[in-house]
């Protein structure tokens, strides 16, 4: 099936808008962390990358997607609702009294594999599933998305060693490299670079891509099933925290927040403007 890059871009814009509306209505949610990874999620779910069936979330042969950076749950919930995993009406009750899910990812939402929010853990679960798949001789792939700030957790590197040693070439990890953490840019805080060298040294194949170029994302992911390498694959996706909404992007002050009042109005205008610029 031919993937339309322009269609995916359009889808990304729609997801951004829905996600932001959801968070603005709720008055909470990690909006900027979600905006930085929406293009990646759209490519995975709508770019014919992952085998999945919204009508059968428990399908045994599905590829698994583990969102290790659980604070980006608004992005995943919106993508899943759009794909048909659950009624999009539920998004209107995000983090509200009568709602069924909130700011951090929870495993009982259809299409969601794990609860996350405590960082550094989803990656290990993903590696465990990948190992289990190999033990069972099952062919599904395991995709996982990490935050770059999450790479400060020591357990990430425990898993990194483990996955390469066990030749988990069915494990595809993506780092949402938006360069921002909670209070500052990562390179001011404790430098994470050179990331490619680190992951190569830990025994991974590494790609570095523009995480907002749908062409690059799809290119990097579309061949993962036919890779001949025995190593797990790390895709470091350079992104912008708050991509698509200039007034809240690339600024640590917006970590973990949803814009309110005039800021919300401005954010909506910025989002429309960014779409018009494409």
């Amino acid at each position: 099936m031919k993937v339309s890059i322009s269609g995916l871009k359009k889808k990304s814009h729609g997801i951004r808008k829905t996600m932001m509306d959801m968070c603005i209505k709720a008055g909470t949610g990690h909006v900027t962390s979600s905006l930085s990874c929406i293009d990646i999620l759209v490519a995975l779910y709508h770019g014919c990358i992952m085998k999945h069936d919204p009508g059968n979330p428990e399908w045994e042969e599905r590829d698994r997607f583990i969102l290790s950076k659980g604070q980006a749950s608004p992005a995943l919930y919106t993508v899943l609702a759009d794909a048909g995993y659950f009624d999009p009406e539920k998004l209107n009750r995000f983090a509200q009294k009568d709602g069924s899910f909130g700011v951090h990812l929870q495993h009982d939402v259809p299409g969601v594999e794990i609860t996350s929010g405590s960082l550094g853990q989803g990656f290990g679960v993903a590696a465990g599933i990948a190992l289990g798949a190999k033990m069972n001789r099952e062919l599904y792939m395991v995709f996982t998305l990490l935050g770059d700030g999450e790479c400060y957790e020591g357990s990430i590197w425990e898993t990194a060693m483990f996955a390469s040693h066990n030749r988990l070439n069915n494990l595809i990890a993506i780092i949402d490299r938006n360069y921002l953490c909670v209070t500052d840019f990562t390179e001011n805080l404790i430098a994470l670079e050179p990331m490619e060298d680190k992951w190569k040294a830990f025994g991974w194949d590494v790609l570095r891509i523009n995480g907002h170029s749908m062409e690059c994302i799809v290119d990097s992911l579309s061949t993962v099933r036919s890779r001949r390498s025995g190593k797990p694959l790390m895709i470091i996706a350079d992104t912008v925290k708050g991509e698509g909404v200039d007034c809240i992007s690339n600024n640590p002050i917006w970590h973990g927040l949803s814009p309110k009042g005039e800021d919300a109005d401005m954010a909506r205008i910025c989002l429309e403007r960014s779409c018009g610029n494409e």
Binding site: G128, T159, F162
Partner: peptide
């Protein structure tokens, strides 16, 4: 599976293995 002296990873790997039916 020898996870090395890395108990945090051992538990998450175990959880993943369990999700894979082990």
């Amino acid at each position: 599976v020898n996870a090395g002296i890395a108990e945090q990873n051992a538990v998450t790997i175990a959880a993943g293995l369990c999700l894979a039916g082990k």
